[in-house]
Amino acid sequence: MGRYIVSRLAQLVIVFFGVTLLIYAAVWALPGDPIRALAGDRPLSESVINALRDEHNLDDPLLVQYLKYMGGLLSGDFGTDFSGRPVWDQMAQRWPVTMRLALTAWVIEAIVGIVLGLIAALRRGRWPDHTILLFSIAVISIPIFVLAYTAQLVLGVNAGIFPVSGISDGWPRSYILPALILAAFGTAQVGRLVRASVLENLRADYVRAAVAKGLSRRRVVSVHVLRNSLIAAVTFLGIELGFLLGGTIVIEGVFNVPGVGQLLFRSLQTQEGAVVVGVATALVLIFLLANLVVDLLYGVLDPRIRHD
């Protein structure tokens, strides 16, 4: 197990360098000069363009730029954006916001998803099951931005239950609506996964054995079935956290939540290389770590899988 973790961590380092280089190259490959376009139609003077390009190492070859960037990164310098603001400052300010939003959504997904999945499985074929199925499919087939705008309009503007946008009301008021929308898709997925797993496990031999042994249904379900059914949900939720973190772009845009998703999108549009690489790298790292944890949890939850 220890060896396994060490080797996974070593792989992680390699992936880290690979991904940062890829992202760097990707931003570098975008057409157009971001400095020249800083002010839209209005051209900057050549001397200013040169000064800014020089300041941001944009005239160096790709590999030199990358090495300069990594050199700075190793000494804790994440670089600056084109208006001179340290990328680290922006991330330090925005990560907690995105974390809060993503974790709120994640908890909603986990709790609501598992509960709905269980109900659907235990009431299989009856109205709760059908209702939940309908809900899941509706959520899957409606684009998230449609959901978001509709919720904003109905619950925010018309009904006034939640703030329309921004985070000025703090947690939880400002976060609930965006988190609900963000969680909707994942909740449907978790529900489906749990329902199917539970159904499958209910039919498994060990359940029959347990029942035959005289254990109560409640105990069989809550101890044996649930534990064995959660593996799929845990896998999903582990990966999902990474997606929620990186995937808040639409939601952060619609609800004006100043998190990293927004920052990433805006920086992509303006080709702010240092910001994109900083945010994307952090996202990739979190994702990789979450994956590692999930893989380790596998072994704990399902003794049939082992990492040898």
Partner: peptide, 19 residues
Amino acid sequence: MSASRFGFRRRRGNRGASS
């Protein structure tokens, strides 16, 4: 971003027509 929307910068950013 919104999808747009998202704003995202028009110009400076975003999707809306900026100033």
